[in-house]
Design a protein around this nucleic acid. Structure first.
Lengths: 173, 173
DNA sequence: CGAGATGTTTCCTCCCGGTGATAAATCCGG
DNA sequence: CCGGATTTATCACCGGGAGGAAACATCTCG
């Protein structure tokens, strides 16, 4: 715990690093140069302080980010090294290949993961047949459905993992 | 879109008011008395500054809250590079051509985009049939409707993207 | 041996983008 | 107010391609 989980970086010098961190959903604290205004596109896992800020302010900002990160994190699926995926109260055990695929999808939970990325994740050693990925996605789908998760297809782009929608949300369009 | 939408309050004096605002999901900025540490239970719609803070800092904090509030209230659509358009809690995946059209419309959200501009955006490489744009607008309309967005026609001028239900703030007070 | 994991082949469905045809909607001159 | 001209909306259809799924063949490990 502590500052370890949060990335500290200078703004605007490390703008590109910030983008990378944001894409990976890593909580981060920007150290703002004097006279510079904070960046505009922010998510809840980002905050900023002036470089000259006092120690306490910095700690307080970090603590705030950590709390929000924790709040965000608790409804994310999680896979351990034994291929057991937990989501809320439910869990499924996944065979090796599917566990690797699931890991790649969980890392970008809610965002699109390309087929190439999934192939690389599922078969790190080498190539597999053209359809292997499709079939494993199908099998993974069936397993994950029992855990309240859904894999959506984004045609010609990849797949996206999200929480299965309770029918109540669709009811009143 | 000034300070009007955000509640300013003192901490810890107005602790109870803060609770009420949080319960109503009203974005708020706490003005922290000196030597006091910020409260612990925060959501993404809350931020804080020291009472002695400079004008600019205050403005920047407010702007940050507003952006997060907008993102949470889903007031601005957003398209990522994978053709996924997000609007509030909902999202649609768009095929390439429609994604490009949608990008052009989102860039000028709420304003008219000419047909020429849309043609250029949708088919950057070259020509398309005269009817192609109409048909793709139709298809885009159907998709976006599931995300709570509407494309309005401005005859002989172009199209305009806006939120489906103009939320009548007075309607259900 | 038997069950589950993994790959492959194959077939089939649906989606995407484009076109033409046709119905509406709107504008304009008389 | 009418009828034609222009602009939009919607539909049906096609060709190509991507994804879904069943069936089958190995393979591994207890």
């Amino acid at each position: 715990m502590g500052l370890a989980d949060i990335a500290l970086l200078r703004w605007p010098e490390e703008a590109s690093r910030r983008e990378a961190l944001a894409a990976d959903r890593v909580p981060r604290l920007l150290l703002l140069d004097d006279g510079i205004s904070p960046p505009s596109a922010v998510d809840c896992l980002e905050d900023w302080v002036r470089v000259g800020a006092r120690e306490e302010e910095l700690r307080a900002r970090v603590a705030g980010i950590e709390r929000r990160a924790a709040a965000h994190h608790q409804n994310l699926p999680d896979i351990d090294d034994d291929g057991v995926l937990r989501f809320g109260a439910r869990w499924v055990s996944l065979p090796p290949v599917e566990a690797r695929l699931a890991r790649a999808l969980v890392e970008r939970f809610g965002a699109v993961v390309s087929r190439d990325a999934l192939s690389a994740a599922g078969w790190p050693a080498g190539t597999s047949g053209r359809n292997a990925l499709d079939v494993h996605i199908l099998r993974l789908r069936r397993r994950l459905s029992t855990a309240g998760l859904v894999i959506r297809t984004v045609r010609s782009r990849g797949y996206l993992l999200e929480q299965a929608r309770p029918p109540s949300l669709l009811a009143h369009a």
